[in-house]
Amino acid sequence: MASSRQVFVATAGTEAECTFEIGSVSKVLTGMLYSDALQRGIVSPETTLGDALPLDGHGPVAAVSLGSLAVHRSGLPRLAPGMSVLRRSLAFSIRGENPYGETLAELLAQTRDVRLGSPRPRYSNLGFQLLGHAIARADGREYGLLLREVFGPGYSTPSRPDDLHDLDLRGTSRLGRVVQPWVGEALAPAGGIRADVGSLGELLRSILDRTAPGVTALEPVADFSPRVRIGAAWITVPYRGRTITWHNGATGGFSSWIGIDREACVGVAVVSARHGAVDRPGFHLLEELAASGSAVLD
């Protein structure tokens, strides 16, 4: 059945065909891939990382379940313990370098003998990196290919700077300095996806129509913090008398936000090729458009 919902796309300083780094908004796409894989019987919530990834001899990480990863309750740390976080943070701060860039094999090596914490809510980039790659491996392909097969060609997962093309925007820091693109095979499921604005608009429309693959990812299934619930990556919060399902993201040179008021049947995505939170305009646009019945993309 054809959708009657409208998608409005507005851009400033760029073309609609250009792509943005969407940072941790990548996680909601990974969450939807997980929910879609559940529906297709490819994995179950009890499937472990060791069932899908080559983790023999990696200790407790192999026994972590995909279901716990999807709601940030795996006990995994925020980042892989072998990342040399301080050194990479300094390199980014001083020279604008990409702090990521690992291959999947390098990421798996970093998780060897990782220590698990308690299974309480704990936001984990590492967890979603592993979740996305595990889903893809269980489905017999690599993550970027699975992403495009499910959601379309408007998404990309560059592994190296050489993978970027003229339509792939270069981002800037909060101070306006051009920074290196955040690319890397390992990063993709948690923060390495690029998207054009039209594809994000179509994603919103399909979510509102409930035709999107893995749309059940938006349903909150666990508590994340007081008054905050979580589905498969998607966060649900009360906001000025409404219930909003959303996620944000940031890389060194980009910021992003996506949110949906499912009761009002409206959605908004905001993406910027400059580092600096866009949550406030995202929530504000969603509030303004709550009575319009349209999916809106800025």
Rank of each mutant, 00 (worst) to 15 (best):
S292F: 08
T48G: 03
A186M: 05
E287P: 00
I258F: 07
E142V: 14
Y239M: 09
A2V: 08
E21V: 08
D163Q: 07
G249T: 12
T19K: 07
L116V: 10
L116W: 11
L200H: 14
L79P: 02
E288N: 04
S118D: 10
G57L: 12
A91E: 14
R122E: 10
E185M: 04
R141V: 06
Q180E: 15
F128L: 14
A138Y: 00
V43D: 01
G140Y: 02
I193M: 00
Q6K: 14
Q180G: 09
S44A: 13
L204N: 06
T11E: 12
L169V: 04
S159N: 06
G249Q: 06
T30W: 02
P60M: 09
G192I: 06
R280I: 13
V178M: 14
F8W: 10
R194S: 14
W234M: 03
E21A: 03
T11Q: 10
H133M: 12
S199D: 00
R120N: 00
T103R: 14
M1C: 09
L200S: 15
M32R: 09
R87G: 14
A138F: 01
L66C: 11
I42S: 00
L297W: 10
S89T: 05
L86A: 13
S225Q: 14
R112K: 15
S35K: 02
A186C: 04
I258Y: 07
L147P: 12
I235F: 10
G75A: 03
C18Q: 11
T243A: 02
L297Q: 11
L107C: 13
G144A: 05
G282L: 11
R242H: 15
S68I: 03
V228R: 14
Y155A: 02
P281W: 01
L104T: 06
L38A: 01
V268P: 11
S124A: 13
V237A: 12
R112P: 13
E102W: 15
S35N: 04
S118Q: 14
W182P: 09
G267I: 00
G293T: 00
S26I: 06
M83H: 07
R73A: 08
L76T: 12
T236W: 04
S89V: 04
H72S: 10
F151A: 09
F128G: 08
S4W: 02
L200P: 15
G249F: 07
G201Y: 03
H275R: 13
E102L: 15
G171F: 12
R210H: 03
L164H: 02
T251K: 04
I193W: 00
L203K: 05
E97H: 13
L33V: 06
V221P: 00
R205Q: 13
R274G: 14
G276L: 12
A52H: 01
M83V: 03
I135F: 01
L286H: 06
L104V: 15
L208H: 06
